[in-house]
Write a protein that binds this DNA or RNA. Structure first.
Length: 485
RNA sequence: GGCGGUAUCGUCUAGGGGACUAGGACACAGCCCUCUCAAGGCUGGAACACGGGUUCGAAUCCCGUUACCGCUACCA
């Protein structure tokens, strides 16, 4: 947990395009981005598409879209790992030439058999370097014959250690590291080799990634040393778990950032929430804007413990951001959702812009998600009301009496100025005159106006709906209730 | 199995030897506000995994145990 060793570090996020952008990956990207933006460093994106069988263009697109949605912009061109195959091979051959690696003609089948045998004996299989040792004549013969071989790294004696920026010193005795394969027999690189080769080529000075890579790190450091390259800083951040404490999975809720987008979570809230999973600003501040986050971010606040993803808290956070986001910005984000729900057309929203903003102001404090807000906005756009059964059952219980109350409300309102204060005075007077509590008048009215039991203040609703619609709805309610007795 | 990492309320976390009868937030319960729902305010229950040390003194340092996670592939 110290400061990086260069004033302007180069960092990267390196996902493999084998699915959607996972929230864990998104959080890794966020921390890399935050660090780069905080320090004036560079944030790069590398798509690790070497696993052709599992990589898809669609996944690559999903990663771009997810990052863009979150507002995580990357610098320079995107690097596609698959395009660097030649360099991966060259680096492996360099290792071979310098003696840091050797050819191994053992076939996958043989290896498999050896492993099974060891297992049967109750032993742990470790690759014995002598297996690959060949007489020079034999080696030449095999080479001439074109026998396939892998290139294995010759792990030296000693200990490999580094000062992890979040964990402090971590050390691995080299004897626990097998001579690992660097280049497969088809001359494609193995993960650790491709990563190191690319990170070197990209000039990465700080590798920040999930702590599931801790045990890969010594192998990578060995590779840097063998290649004669400077070793970058490493920062291993904790994983994100599901509510059951296990790894986040599709089975137990949404894992793709796109899922949260569709749920109506704001990017700023998602970013804020994710940042607080594995990082703490050090004080009690929770809700932060993007600028505040960058200001407050520091490697010191990076935590070691895996965090559990709590949807309830995300929703609360989203509610906070719904309230705090500048109204114009919120409106712009909301617009597509409103259009998609069929509440209004683009033209209508533009035409009634200030009315729409007023509605938004009233709904934003009572909605936790964008989709929730759209649902609540429905009665203000729809021509025909749909009545919520529970609301009707609760507030329109006594039909004749309710019809009477609502009829008197309509009559009163017809001669009242269409102004919130004026209407409030009039209706409160009316309730008193009829000898009932205001709730007995306002609640049935709310159902008549919105079809729902919850809404903004009833006088705001009247103003928002306007005179004609309001009176029309009240009359319709009276009819629906069987008319005035 | 071996190696590595982690361990404070249900959850996110503050805490880095005495300020801790352990603070904040989400969630939960109650109250206030109130035309409803939110928002907001107040109150409450709720945690230092266990065992040894070190020390005058440990949530904080060390060791062990346990639990969880990761790596241990010609996966990434």
């Amino acid at each position: 947990m110290t400061t990086p060793n260069t004033p302007a570090p180069r960092l990267r996020f390196a996902p493999s395009p084998t699915g959607y952008l996972h929230v864990g990956g998104a959080r890794t990207a966020l921390f890399n981005w935050l660090w780069a933006r905080k320090t004036g460093g560079t944030f790069l994106l590398r798509i690790e598409d070497t696993d052709k069988a599992r990589s898809t263009d669609e996944s690559t697109r999903a990663i771009f879209e997810g990052l863009t949605w979150l507002g995580l912009d990357w610098d320079e061109e995107v690097v596609f790992q698959g395009a660097n195959l030649e360099r991966h091979r060259r680096d492996a051959d360099r290792l071979l030439a310098s003696g840091y690696a050797y050819r191994d003609f053992t076939t996958a089948e043989e290896l498999d058999r050896l492993r099974k045998d060891a297992e049967a004996r109750g032993e742990t299989f470790t690759f014995d370097r002598r297996l690959a040792e060949l007489h020079p004549d034999e080696l030449e013969r095999r080479l001439e014959r074109g026998d396939p071989y892998t290139i294995r790294f010759r792990v030296p004696e000693g200990t490999t250690e580094w000062h992890d920026l979040v964990h402090g010193r971590i050390a691995f005795p080299n004897k626990d590291i097998d001579d690992f394969i660097v280049l497969r027999s088809d001359r494609t690189p193995i993960y650790n080799h491709a990563v190191v080769s690319d990170d070197i080529a990209m000039g990465i000075t700080l590798v920040m990634r999930g702590d599931d890579h801790i045990s890969n790190t010594p192998k990578q450091i060995l590779l840097y040393e063998a290649l004669g390259e400077p070793i970058p800083d490493f920062a291993h951040i904790p994983m994100i778990h599901g509510m059951d404490g296990k790894k986040l999975s599709k089975r137990r809720g949404a894992v793709a950032v796109g899922d949260y987008q569709h749920m109506g979570i704001l990017p700023s809230a998602m970013r804020n929430f994710l940042a607080l999973l594995g990082w703490s600003p050090g004080d009690d501040v929770e809700v932060m804007s993007q600028a505040e986050m960058i200001t407050r971010f520091s490697g010191e606040g990076l935590l070691k413990k895996a965090a559990v993803f709590d949807l309830k808290k995300l929703e609360w956070m989203n509610g906070q951001h719904m309230m705090l986001t500048p109204i114009a910005e919120l409106e712009a984000y909301l617009r597509p959702f409103v259009l998609q729900a069929g509440l209004a057309t683009e033209a209508q929203l533009t035409e009634r812009h200030s009315w729409w903003l007023q509605l938004l102001e009233l709904l934003r404090v009572r909605a936790r998600t964008v989709t929730d807000l759209v649902r609540q906005a429905q009665p203000y756009f729809a021509d025909a009301l749909t009545y919520d059964e529970a609301a009707v059952a609760k507030h329109w219980k006594d039909a004749p009496a309710t019809a009477g109350h609502l009829d008197s409300v309509a009559t009163t309102l017809e001669t009242t100025e269409w102004d919130a204060t004026a209407m409030e005075t009039a209706l409160r007077t009316l309730a008193e005159a009829r000898g009932i509590g205001t709730g007995k008048l306002f609640q049935p009215l709310r159902v008549a106006l919105t079809g729902m039991a919850e809404s903004p203040g009833i006088f705001d609703v009247l103003v928002l709906l306007g005179r004609d619609t309001s009176l029309g709805r009240i009359r319709a309610a009276v009819n629906r209730l069987g008319g005035v007795p």
